[in-house]
Amino acid sequence: MQIYRFEDKKPFMEKLEELLKSGFTSRQLEIYLPHPDHEIEELVEEYWPKSKLKFITLAGGLSGCSAGFAFTIFTSLDWPLITSGKPLVSIPPYIVIAFELTILFGALFSLGGFLLLSRLPSFKQIFHPEEYGNEFVIKILREET
């Protein structure tokens, strides 16, 4: 296993580009960044796949919206009780509930998806943290390409 550590972004990005060009996949390299960086993200995403979180968020939003309508309509029909002379299934007020649940489920699914995709919580890292401070680090896990 080889480790490259950099204080500054520029030499780090040069080395990273060289490794990515020579065909290292996301399983063979581990990259540590002290903070998010759009330049680095753009560079790496030319070679590696993008985050799949968007599909999870979308699934959450859609299920929240349908759950909102399904639940309000079901409960109105389950015990039919006319209030203020309104129709039993009054869609306009139910839009409010469906809207709120779209956001709620979207956010909860995003959180779950984020934890799942980022492998969090990581107990190994909680009890025996591996820290690199403010350095940019590239770790080659496996040499063969």
Binding site: L33, V44, L120, S122, Q125
Partner: peptide
């Protein structure tokens, strides 16, 4: 939560 700061996590 045992945040490590790997590229994939930041992504």
């Amino acid at each position: 939560l045992g945040w490590k700061g790997t590229f994939k996590q930041w992504q």
